[in-house]
Computed example of a mutant assay.
Amino acid sequence: MTFLFVYGTLLHKVDSRMANFLKANAKKIGSGYMIGRLYEINGYPGVIKSTNTEDKVFGNIFELDDTDMVFKELDQYEEVGIEFKQPNEYKREQITAYFEDGKNMNCWVYTYNHSIEKLTRIESGDYWSYINRIDG
């Protein structure tokens, strides 16, 4: 089984073409967090891993149905691969995700792969609340 942690435009609550693609090709198995820091890029988020356990980024954990097909689509969406400008803006890597009850599992996640120096940190680690605070 392959699992994916999402924290932004692919969240289960989002109604977009790619979020709906993920919902159709994966099963949401829970909500939780990863240890990381969340940043506003340019109307979308990016996460970087952290070693500080107080840095939490909240999201959803999905079990993928057809891993190769799903990652092929998501890699295109996130512009991950040699056919995109190098270095890629994101990279797909494995992390430990934690469920709300404290259990954890290994998941794939798309992490931001450029400098965060001029970016605004989303202190709450919760992109859904962040965009709804701004937009509505």
Rank of each mutant, 00 (worst) to 15 (best):
T2H: 15
F3V: 12
L4Y: 08
Y7W: 06
G8C: 04
V14E: 06
S16L: 00
A19L: 00
N20C: 08
N20Y: 03
A26N: 02
K28N: 13
G32N: 04
I35P: 02
I35L: 02
E40D: 06
I41W: 03
N42I: 14
G43A: 06
G43V: 13
Y44E: 07
Y44S: 12
K49L: 04
K49C: 03
T51A: 11
T53W: 08
D55Y: 14
K56L: 15
F58I: 08
F58H: 12
N60T: 02
F62I: 05
T67K: 01
D68P: 15
V70S: 04
E73F: 14
E73I: 15
L74G: 02
Y77G: 00
E78D: 15
E78K: 08
G81F: 10
E83C: 03
K85A: 15
N88K: 06
N88E: 08
K91G: 07
I95R: 14
I95Y: 11
T96L: 12
A97T: 12
Y98C: 10
F99M: 13
E100L: 11
N104E: 13
M105W: 04
W108L: 05
T111F: 00
Y112C: 07
H114P: 04
S115T: 14
K118W: 01
I122A: 03
E123A: 11
S124F: 05
D126Y: 04
Y127V: 03
W128A: 12
N132S: 00
N132E: 06
D135S: 15
G136T: 05
